[in-house]
């Protein structure tokens, strides 16, 4: 900070905070895409086929994610079910 900045009470911008925020957003995204194991698309297809034996659903109604957290990997499976008798969309989530 130079003398003039100090005189007018101007604070230098804290760029480190911005660096941290950008990294958090970017890595949350990259961890699910680039680190996904190679078998994920195939597993998704097979899960879809099993569900289709019982319930008619679309391909994009099944979401499979693998996430690394401290020490463990979490497999997240979300299945959106078609309109049930209650008239609302039901969803089945296993994690």
């Amino acid at each position: 900070m130079n003398l003039l900045d100090r005189f007018f009470g101007r604070q230098p911008k804290n760029t480190a905070v911005e660096a941290k925020d950008r990294l958090k957003i970017l890595l949350a995204h990259e961890r699910v895409t680039t680190n996904a194991p190679d078998f994920l698309p195939m597993m998704k297809q097979e899960i879809l086929e099993v569900i289709r034996k019982y319930i008619q659903i679309d391909k994009d109604q099944v979401k499979v994610h693998m996430q690394r957290q401290q020490g463990v990997s979490v497999l997240e499976l979300e299945v959106e079910l078609p309109q049930g008798p209650s008239g609302k969309n039901a969803s089945l989530s296993l994690a």
Binding site: R22, L23, L26, L27, E30, T34, N35, P37, R68, S73
Partner: peptide
């Protein structure tokens, strides 16, 4: 530094898989 942290994260993913 942002690019170094990002690459380290990528390497951690590779070590784990």
């Amino acid at each position: 530094e942002v690019s170094s942290v990002r690459d380290s994260d990528r390497i951690l993913g590779i070590l784990n898989s």
